[in-house]
Amino acid sequence: MAPSRAFTRLAALQRARPAACRSSAVPRAYHSYDHPPPPGSFNTAEQAILSAAYRHVPEHGFTQHTLSLGAREAGYLDISTNLLPEGPFSLIRYHLVTQREALAPRSETVFGGGSEKNPGHPPLQVSDKVERLAWERLQGNKDVNHRWQEALAVMAQPTHVPASLRELALLADEIIYLAGDASVDPSWYAKRGALSTVYASSELFMTNDRSPGFGETRQFLRRRLDESARVGSAIGNVAQWVGFTASAGVNVLRSTGVRI
């Protein structure tokens, strides 16, 4: 019979799909409990060159020269830097990826024993955690902050814009995930979009910040997050009002006999 055959085929498809997902290892733009991300985005040789080169970044910046120094230090030739397909941008991406991946262990040390050590304190709100994590991530730029404008310029080049935006989205997702936000409604996008904007502008602000310990950057970050929360609640209030008024209007029309 036709229907049963269709069902068998569907079942076969459903059985085949997880295997396909696993084999293709498609990078995900969100956290998946069932499919943890692949271990590293760089292979061993790339890792060796990049980690050696990264030590030279404060001195020589995100340049081909730095990569070449790193390659020589790791025992490779000058020409071996060709292994990295994007040149200096690979070094920037290495910084972004390592800092993002370092956020999870750091959040454990920051929040891990918080509630148990101080039982008197109320547990942190999600918004506070987001602020704290964004600040922790900004502090990751401390060592290369004087070179970060160059890096932003490279990231803004048209060929590198998609990869840079992708990293930004992954970072925003990581922060919100680590802050414990588990909502799956349309605000999923709004939250991540708002946090990305705030983080990017704070990063830009930080490149010109000369205050001790980047205190002004932290103030800036707090102000922007407060503003986005205020804007968010304002939009929510307006939407609620519009929805109520519209449904009330429809009811008024119905009471006068219009068939809606």
Partner: peptide, 16 residues
């Protein structure tokens, strides 16, 4: 250009 032959971080530049 993408291969960038001859680039060397050493002085004098290493032969290739």
């Amino acid at each position: 250009t993408s291969l960038n032959p001859g680039l060397s971080s050493a002085t004098p530049p290493t032969p290739q």
